[in-house]
Design a protein around this nucleic acid. Structure first.
Lengths: 340, 340
DNA sequence: TTCGAACGTGAGAGCGCTCTCATGAACGCC
DNA sequence: GGCGTTCATGAGAGCGCTCTCACGTTCGAA
């Protein structure tokens, strides 16, 4: 594998064929594992391949097969804000891991702005990828529809604002998770439970508020202690302070993400409340930071790895020609730590 | 752009040529911006292109040009451990951003284990990418040498353990950063400064310890308050506890990364020391969590975005045929927060 | 006026692979 | 023993693009 003279002309199928004394077609058969090759010829070809250090040219193969064996992971505008949030990085790495062993490659695409956006559609249509995974979408994103219309296999991460028939997506059960978080607070005896909700124009934000409401409704309680943040720690801190002044008697808080929960923790400390004794706090996301807060944050774990893997599997079967399946919603899990 | 009938045969150069009433070669010239095309023909071709919704086929282009306009970002074994560390995610996203506007695509490659490793070399040699960015290398990694020998443009992130002549890399000034951190502690009047060092078989770990030693040596002081961790929070906590028992009089600590600094903060709190009054703490990395600790962590900011961009630029010039330049070492920055 | 350079354009040969179809050998069957 | 099958193999036509080379115009210089 090593001693191949550098700068030597790269071997092609023809080179291998000549070396093995067979035709190009036969070498191709061996490479693609066709059964109709005699054992002797097969080994002859194989030794020729290793002797020459031959590696098939992917571009040529794609061209002939009309298939690229690679998929795109499209991220919408990952700016500094997103960098702070490890979600995207995790999705990327998890997707990449899900692809190990499939022989499919991952191409990362940045749909920076709208100009890039239409270029992206072109790019995808240029046949450089067999399908598309859409992560971190904006709500008004025209991309899913474009791709759908172009007949390109597509899977979206998270529930899109508007449902498009024929578009498959993998969401995490935000309603269920939020409900679970709130029920955990109820189960521990909390009765005056507030929530720090996320932006309501994001499905995750709206769904989590919905879960909080449902849990309280199921328990026959009013769900009227609500403040809104924008998923940043600072907003969580402010929202918590506002909640404390509006509802000084609250004894439990569900924050729609961990970063806001961290802010809430800080606001509670500043207000002289102890966690979890005076006020119990539950977050959402289970980011790394949640393990390291004081006290460690009880939170809802998102199955990001599962989500990425499911998305990948869905996409691959779609590429394989299977019909578009139903959307998948993955369950969440409560991680009990110290804060509730 | 929208009304293209779905399922219609994808247009090729020939289709466009026929539509515009010119030859394939001319269309190719227009697409590639050749100056030797008359304005009338040019516009005729352009309208034909938009009318047909033509998009060049990348595989065919690669095949003809022997160039793919894409590069690989190779990650070594990003398992759960790495997921916790946002470094890799940031490198990925930053690289992807650095590529915006260059027309170059990013292919993410997972070199999971040694088996995958040799497949990776094949993959790269298959001409699917024009060059390779190596992130998160192991020290004994044979990959850089393999790629170098194969004549594939390669840029490594971080200083490799063994220097290979002709291999270009972009490192962050670990020695300088650690020195700066320690000097900051000295400047604030601390005199009995300890360090929680990282693994010494990683260049980042060794270099940061070196910086700590140099700063103290320059100040004419002994650098003998050293404990070792493995870059996890738990190890930082233990190391801090060990330091406190060995050197109860210490008044400053430099931790070789933020996660260990977070552990140190916790150990100090447990020991009843206040930060920064009793003991000042400086971390390294400036991860998101550093903003949210109590008190917020003073730390050394790593220019990850710059690093990714520099690596990308270096690689692109190398691909462009320029000679391999000298390694680049990027400066770090002290971020003063509350802990020191 | 004539010649050569410059320029716009087309024809056609690849790039390295897959896949269909043809071919001829080997085989079982009546 | 002749015939239809099966099977391994080869020839060759693409896949969609770029690029070299040749060709016919046009234009400025001699």
């Amino acid at each position: 594998m090593s001693g191949l003279s550098v700068g030597r002309q790269k071997p092609t199928l023809d080179t291998v064929a000549a070396e093995a004394g067979v035709s190009r077609a036969t070498v191709s058969r061996v490479i693609n594992g066709s059964p109709r090759v005699s054992p002797e010829v097969k080994t002859a070809v194989e030794t020729a391949i290793t002797r020459l250090g031959y590696v098939p040219n992917r571009a040529a193969r794609s061209l002939a097969m009309r298939r690229t064996d690679s998929i795109a992971l499209v991220m919408r505008e990952p700016d500094a804000t997103v960098l702070a949030d490890p979600y995207l990085g995790n999705i990327i790495i998890a997707t990449s891991q899900a692809l190990v062993g499939t022989g499919v490659q991952l191409v990362l695409v940045n749909a920076q702005n709208d100009a890039e956006h239409s270029r992206l559609a072109d790019y995808v249509r240029s046949g450089h990828v067999d399908g598309v995974l859409l992560a971190s979408m904006h709500d008004d994103d025209p991309l899913p529809r474009l791709l759908l219309e172009a007949g390109i296999p597509t899977v979206v991460g998270g529930r899109p604002q508007r449902h498009l028939p024929g578009l498959s997506y993998v969401d995490v059960d935000n309603v269920g998770g939020a409900q679970m978080a709130t029920e955990h607070l109820l189960a521990s005896g909390r009765r005056r439970i507030a929530t720090i909700a996320g932006p309501q124009d994001m499905t995750a934000g709206a769904d989590r508020l919905g879960g909080y409401r449902r849990a309280l409704a199921d328990a026959g309680r009013k769900a009227d202690r609500v403040a809104y943040g924008d998923f940043t720690r600072e907003s969580g801190e402010q929202a918590m302070a506002a909640l404390l002044s509006r509802h000084p008697d609250l004894d439990g808080v569900f924050a729609a993400n961990d970063l806001m929960a961290v802010g809430a923790l800080r606001a509670l400390r500043a207000a002289g409340r102890t966690v979890p004794d005076d006020v119990a706090v539950v977050g959402y996301d289970d980011i790394e930071m949640a393990r390291h807060t004081e006290p460690p944050l009880t939170t809802i774990h998102q199955p990001i790895i599962d989500q990425a893997r499911t998305m990948t599997e869905l996409l691959l079967t779609q590429i394989g020609g299977d019909p578009v399946g139903d959307p998948v919603v993955l369950p969440t899990e409560l991680v009990e730590r110290g804060s509730a």
